[in-house]
Design a protein around this nucleic acid. Structure first.
Lengths: 335, 335
DNA sequence: CTGTTAGCGCCTTCAT
DNA sequence: ATGAAGGCGCTAACAG
């Protein structure tokens, strides 16, 4: 192993460690071009790399950010990570990654562990943004992503949930649907779901929850038939023209599985649209109308914001910022 | 901020830092139960956390592993990360994450950066496993995942590419297909593609490349029509019964887009099956037959192996291990 | 331009 | 059972 330390290099070059250190930190003004070249040569020959650990300790800084995601299995998550990762490299940060697997307790542990590791900043895709743990975090070094807390004290990057669903729902309405339904996992106070539902209600004017179809988070259409039953009832009256809006791609999948089992066909028997876009939706026959969100941009913006905060020491903004990333309606043939 | 150091705690407890250190490292034998309790109380009150940086420096160890993935955008990647992440938490490792975005140069930089950060071990999902950089890595602290090098010196976890494709292809053959085609991104010496193709050839007995359909890595069916043309030619002769096997889910998507544009229908006009399984494949009409691989298990096994290697100091095995994760054939209605 | 000298926060013999 | 002291590899004044 090449266990060279700064001392070894100093000895080899016949200079002091301070000079080597200066060289390492690009303070070339503080040395002759002769020693500069000598150092360059030696460091190259020895393949010396300064210890980041020692450096971090000495400078009392740590160019790494911690990220905690709610569920890495969620297809939404990858592009977000990708965006964060992109910006991390660009700004010279490392990223240490944790997955909460939708478990609040585990998320708490992850965040604590991250903080103990003295990361410079935190990006959190929260399991439950109303969790108290976020109030113990400082807005000066963390940003939250995707889900937003009611009483948040922390800057947040979200997508335009309400407006985009409202628009899509309106589009459906304009096709003379008599009844629209919002299909979702349990609302559970989760802002993304709540806001999408709010957009739906805004467009339809519904004020009760009769047009809300909730399925369990781990709904398995091969075992559970409750969704099928509900759909059958909804579709009973042939005089009505009914449409469904699904809260995300996985809910859409369960919904479609259920309708297929009962041999319903869209847009003949019902209309359908969904939040989230994935490639396969255009492969479906007919192709699915959907709301495209730019998850990659969410990740980028999050890291961008975090970097800015980390740069400026303690700018205590009065209230946390909320940045909204634009979405796009993709209209196809499913309603 | 709670900037307590081990000195502060020592002072507060009226003991030496050595004792505090012993407490932190659970060397309770080396102190009276009185001071033990006192320390417990103080540490709790002050919410003191020892600096991992300092600790790492002092002990010259670092419980973090670095992972480099070829393309986080690839749906194969998430479950792998998920598996690694799971095992990391289980064994008390942190994981620092980098994405190469399919860029060999970037991968090299990532790996180097990771090594400079003195991670304990490396898990690599390589862009090009035949790259020289892997030969500079020691098998004692790295494991490779998914793609395998011809002349590898490093333990690798892969899935059963050849056999499973061979089986699936045989299944197609048994349905009296007269011509089978293998649709893929450029083979480029990449083991996964090569092995899948080898399985295909083993089953069909083809020995030339006439039944190989290659599309560019970034094939965009909305701009490029080469795939359509090729398919049209292949499907020209109505007397032949032809089937396609696609190398992975994204190739399948491009393939399906192309056939849809020309209004071909499966299994009427052709049969199709693919490597990789995703939920949407059972939603397609007809549902797609595919090969399910357990990517999560790949991640788990990789970290498991790495942990073992890191534990035992320098077991220099004669030759690198290759562990194969089993796959499963999912037969549906697409051929 | 270059070297000396304290630390950074913790661990680890070696004494007591 | 506890403490003193040196050291991990590097940085940052401060001298010269």
């Amino acid at each position: 192993m090449d266990k060279f330390t700064i001392k070894d290099i100093a000895k080899l070059a016949d200079v002091s460690t301070a000079t080597v250190s200066n060289y390492l930190n690009s303070n070339y003004a503080k040395m002759s071009s002769t020693t500069q070249k000598k150092l360059a040569g030696i460091i190259d020959k020895t393949n010396y790399h300064p210890s980041t650990t020692a450096r971090n300790l000495a400078k009392n800084e740590n160019k790494t950010i911690g990220v905690s995601v709610a569920d890495i299995t969620n297809p939404f998550t990858s592009p977000v990570i990708s965006g964060i990762s992109e910006k991390c490299e660009q700004y010279g940060y490392k990223m240490v990654f944790t997955n909460s697997n939708n478990d609040e307790q585990r998320e708490i542990e992850n965040i604590n562990r991250l903080r103990e590791d003295e990361v410079a900043g935190l990006i959190i895709d929260p399991v439950n943004p109303n969790n108290n743990i976020y109030n113990q975090l400082s807005n000066s070094f963390t940003v939250i992503v995707d889900r937003q807390s009611q009483r948040s004290i922390i800057d947040t990057i979200i997508t335009d949930n309400m407006k985009s669903v409202q628009k899509m729902t309106s589009k459906m309405l304009s096709k003379n649907y008599t009844d629209l339904y919002f299909v979702t996992w349990p609302l559970d106070g989760i802002s993304t779901r709540l806001n999408r539902y709010a957009g739906f209600n805004k467009a339809t004017g519904y004020s009760d929850n009769e047009h809300l179809v909730t399925i369990p988070y781990n709904y398995d259409s091969s075992k559970d038939t409750s969704l099928e039953k509900r759909i059958k009832i909804i579709l009973r009256d042939p005089d009505k023209k009914v449409g469904f809006f699904t809260m995300n791609s996985r809910v859409l999948q369960e919904f479609l599985k259920a309708t297929q089992k009962m041999s319903y066909t869209y847009p003949r028997d019902f209309g359908v649209a969904t939040y989230e876009e994935f490639d396969w939706m255009q492969l479906m026959k007919p192709a699915i109308s959907c709301i495209r969100q730019d998850s990659f941009a969410i990740g980028c913006e999050a890291m961008e914001l975090l970097k800015d905060k980390l740069g400026t020491s303690y700018n205590s903004e009065p209230s946390p910022k909320v940045k909204t990333i634009a979405t796009q309606l993709i209209i196809r043939d499913s309603f």
